[in-house]
Write a protein that binds this DNA or RNA. Structure first.
Lengths: 141, 141
DNA sequence: ACCACATATGAGACCCAGTCTCATATAGCA
DNA sequence: TGCTATATGAGACTGGGTCTCATATGTGGT
């Protein structure tokens, strides 16, 4: 799983450094979303000596490569989520934090309709869905 | 326009204080979105002696009342936008910053489809559309 | 019109996420 | 193996937002 990340970076003209390997492993060990602070804490816990700046730089790098994205949780916190480098939307479980991806599910007709009504020329959009994943639906509320 | 805000607050068991009246006026004077820093600067420019904390508290208050919302601009900046207290989505002009609202444009079928495919039970969603408003489309790029 | 008191305020310290700088280290090619 | 562009860590810095606490003020009851 973290090999995928490294492989991708390899093909993108970036160096495969020690810190990057370690961070890739930490990220893949966390399923779902996490905050930058989580990752910094993970690294600190293992005494890897990785600086905050390096963590943020790595997250930026992954984001540029399209395998990481920002999500704003319903409570306003910022999270990062690993994902496929194609256009898609996120389904975030508000209980366990896991994230699924859905491809376009007919959103184009929605944006077209919004454009028609408003006169806007729509360039991009952001859709985030929050709810309970199948596993968490089974847990009593 | 700012009367609407004040009227609403009046009915919500909050006090109509001087600073709140002034902030309501400043907000209604700005169409579209603005950042908290903008509002702080507006107040400072008029030497109203309003503290930062008061500005943020007022924005929170309006958000609780549903007449103000957070929007994350495509460039990552945080903005506040005044809006109707019903469920809707925002169309943000990336050139002039104006904001329009659109009501549900068939998004329910999209969320239903996403739920079907993923097994998630969807509780809420957030959709933001970015583009050019009718006025800005006429300006040469 | 006044009072009492809950609620709101301003000032500034504080916190957290993220960025920048710069001297040092290192991946990866020749 | 050695060279050099690229990446790193430390820590200062920024910007958005929160907290505290002593003071001020709106408002309901008289």
């Amino acid at each position: 799983m973290s090999e995928q990340l490294l492989e991708l970076l390899n093909g993108a003209g970036v160096r495969l450094t020690g810190p990057r390997r370690e961070l890739a492993a930490l990220i893949s060990k966390r399923g779902g979303h996490f905050t930058a602070a989580d990752l910094v804490a993970d690294a600190a816990k293992r005494r890897l000596g990785i600086g905050r700046a390096t963590v943020f730089r790595f997250l930026d790098l992954l984001t540029e490569q399209g395998v990481m994205e920002h999500v704003d949780l319903p409570d306003g916190r910022h999270a990062y989520v690993p994902c496929e480098p194609t256009h898609h939307h996120h389904l975030v479980c508000t209980r366990c934090g896991s994230v699924s991806e859905v491809e376009d599910c007919g959103i184009d007709s929605v944006t077209a309709e919004a454009a028609r009504r408003s006169g806007f020329e729509i360039q991009s959009h952001r859709l985030e869905l929050f709810g309970r994943c199948p596993k968490c639906q089974k847990v009593k509320r």
